[in-house]
C-alpha cells in the first residue's frame, strides 16, 4: 500500500485530464451506488423504522435461513443459472447471425425496415407478452388448440406440460432481445477496419471466408466482454419475464422457478427488507465469485479483453 501510494499520486498529477474525465461518471456512481451500498448490512439486521438501517438490531444470518429452509434453494439456483446460460448462448448466436446478415446486405430499404421491425418486441411489455402466451396456449380457447380442434386433433394442455416451458422461455427471450442485441454486434462489426476487407477482396476471398476470418475475429472482444458481463448477472432472473410469461404457474414451477420469483412468492405477505437484502446478497456474492474466476481465465488468455 505504502509503496503504491506515491506512483498513484504522481499519476493523478500527470494524467489529471484523464482523471478529470473519469470524474463525472465516478461521482454519479458514488452517489447512486456506493453510498447506498452501505445498506447491504440490512441483510444481517431486523429492520425497524425507529432505529433506522444502522441502528436496527443485528440478527446474524437469520435472514438467509428461509431461503434454504424449504430445500428449494438448490433447484432455483440451478434453474437461474441454466436459463441464463441458455439465453446467453441462443441470443448471442442469433444476434451475431442477424448482425452479420444485416452488415453484408446491400438493399438499403430492406435493411432499414427489418432492423426497425426487429426492435418492436423490445417495446412490448412482459405483461402483454404474458397475455399473448396465455391467449395462444390456454386450453379452452387458445389459438393453438382452436387450430388443433379444427383439424380434428386432440387439444394439448401446454400449461401442465413441464417439458415445453424451457423452450418457450428461451424462445420468448430471443424474440424480445433480438433487435437490441443485434445492434450491439452490428456496432462492433462497424468498428472493424475496412482495409481488412479490401485486402481480402484483392486476395479473392469469398463471403464465407471473409466472415470467418475477418468479421468473427473482429467482434471477439465484444463477445468476450458481453459474456463476462452476463456472468455477472447469471444469478439474477428477469423477474417480470418469468412471472408474466409463465403466469406464475405452479404446475411447472419445477422447471420455471428462478431465484427472483421464488423470493417474491416467499415474501409476498411478509414485508421484510432484511430478507430481501439477504437474497440479493446471496445472488451478488455468488455472481461475483464467478466473475472473478472468469475474468482471471480471460486475463490469462487474452489480457486485453479482461473486464478489470
Amino acid at each position: 500500500m505504502k509503496r503504491s501510494k506515491h506512483p498513484f499520486l504522481q499519476d493523478l498529477k500527470e494524467n489529471r485530464i484523464k482523471w478529470l474525465m473519469l470524474l463525472p461518471a465516478a461521482i454519479v456512481v458514488i452517489l447512486m451506488c456506493y453510498i447506498p451500498m452501505g445498506g447491504i448490512v440490512l441483510a444481517f439486521k431486523e429492520y425497524n423504522y425507529h432505529d433506522g438501517i444502522f441502528g436496527s438490531p443485528w440478527v446474524g444470518f437469520k435472514n438467509f435461513e428461509y431461503f434454504f429452509q424449504s430445500g428449494k434453494a438448490w433447484s432455483v439456483t440451478r434453474n437461474t443459472i441454466l436459463y441464463n446460460l441458455a439465453f446467453l448462448c441462443v441470443n448471442t448466436v442469433l444476434q451475431i447471425t442477424c448482425a452479420i446478415l444485416l452488415s453484408e446486405l446491400a438493399g438499403k430499404w430492406f435493411k432499414r425496415i427489418t432492423q426497425s421491425v426487429m426492435f418492436f418486441p423490445y417495446f412490448i411489455s412482459w405483461v402483454v407478452v404474458g397475455a399473448f402466451i396465455y391467449n395462444m396456449f390456454n386450453f379452452e380457447f387458445g389459438a393453438v388448440n382452436t387450430f388443433l380442434r379444427s383439424l380434428g386433433l386432440e387439444p394439448v394442455d401446454i400449461y401442465s406440460n413441464e417439458a415445453v416451458w424451457p423452450f418457450i422461455l428461451i424462445g420468448v427471450s430471443a424474440f424480445k432481445n433480438v433487435g437490441y442485441g443485434t445492434v450491439m454486434y452490428l456496432a462492433s462489426i462497424m468498428n472493424i477496419d475496412g482495409q481488412l476487407y479490401e485486402a481480402a477482396d484483392l486476395d479473392g476471398a469469398n463471403m464465407w471466408q471473409k466472415i470467418r476470418h475477418i468479421t468473427l475475429p473482429g467482434i471477439r472482444p465484444t463477445v468476450v466482454i458481453l459474456f463476462l458481463l452476463a456472468i455477472g448477472t447469471i444469478m439474477k432472473g428477469d423477474f417480470q419475464m418469468f412471472w408474466q410469461v409463465t403466469g406464475n404457474n405452479p404446475m411447472v414451477l419445477e422447471v420455471t422457478d428462478v431465484i427472483d420469483t421464488y423470493v417474491t412468492r416467499s415474501l409476498l405477505q411478509l414485508q421484510e427488507f432484511g430478507m430481501t437484502s439477504a437474497a440479493g446478497l446471496y445472488q451478488s456474492t455468488f455472481s461475483f465469485l464467478l466473475v472473478l474466476l472468469a475474468n482471471k481465465l480471460v486475463k490469462k488468455v487474452e489480457p486485453d479483453y479482461a473486464l478489470f
Binding site: L22, A25, A26, V29, M32, C33, Y34, P36, M37, G38, G39, I40, L42, Y47, I53, L229, G232, T233, F273, T276, S277, G280, S284, S287, F288, V291, L307, F308
Partner: peptide, 19 residues
C-alpha cells in the same frame, strides 16, 4: 482498477430501501 471500481456496482447494490 478503475474499471473494477465501476464494474463492482453492477454486481453489488444496497437494495431499494437504503437507496
Amino acid at each position: 482498477q478503475v474499471s473494477f471500481f465501476f464494474y463492482f456496482t453492477s454486481i453489488f447494490g444496497g437494495g431499494l430501501v437504503p437507496w
